[in-house]
Amino acid sequence: MRDSTLKKVWIYFLLTVTSFLVFFPVLYAFMISFMSGSEILQGRFFPEAFNFDNYAKVFDRLPLFKYLLNSFVVSLTVMVGQLAVCSLAAYAFVFIPFKGRDLVFFLFISTMMIPWEATMIPNFFTIQKLDWLNTYQGMSLPFFALAFGTFLLRQHFKTIPKELQEASQIAGLSRFAFFWKVILPVSKTSLVTLGAYGFLTTWNMYLWPLLITTNSSVRTVQIGLKQLQSQEISTDWGVVMAGVIVVIIPTLLLLFIGQKQLQKGLSQGALK
């Protein structure tokens, strides 16, 4: 059994070194966020003391609370919107047979081939014409429909026995009531996966908010970071990193909590 002990030590060694390297940039940013300018110039890894000066400064120089709130509102809106729109569509694809359903499904697949960036110019003008620049709806509505999300939920809905629907029909449940009272509660896990995915991707969105926010009314933290970086560059890295840490904490937490679930759910939606 000495062979396998050696193997274990070797694997632990590789795990430790590589995962440290992967996490190093974040860890380093975290350390920097507590350092003063001179400490950073010295090139230290650990700060002298964990004082929150830089955090106070970053909230001072940017309307960071406002940005955080905006990011939350937009991410939650997209999350809820995606869940609603995708689950309705997935429900139709699994539980309502009608002629031409395959054709519509093919249409959904084809949306995956259109890169969003190729459509951004007309989309920008659409939002402008609707007078939705600098609004929450302009930030979120275009992302409610999501082919990937529909597939992910469809995969799960397909595992629900058809007899459940028939039993509900005999009990006299309407179609929507069946969707609301049976399908959604039964699919809680994949809804959580899609929700986390939607929240994460929206929180991290960059190009669209850059295009359609011109003032701080609905601007998100990502654009805030860009602002901060262009204001503070080469002067106060500690403050910039404090901003970075504040911005990544919500999503990192979400990821740490939901890592297992997300991994299972995403690989399920991706395949099969």
Binding site: F23, L225, Q229, V240, I248, T251
Partner: peptide, 27 residues
């Protein structure tokens, strides 16, 4: 303790492009 390492490896998924870029700008 494999869960800890898995979390470390997957951590960059929770970090936005903007935040990552700012960190790498410094690196």
């Amino acid at each position: 303790g494999i869960g800890f390492f898995r979390t470390m490896y997957s951590s960059t998924m929770g970090i936005s492009v903007a935040a990552s870029s700012v960190i790498w700008l410094f690196l």
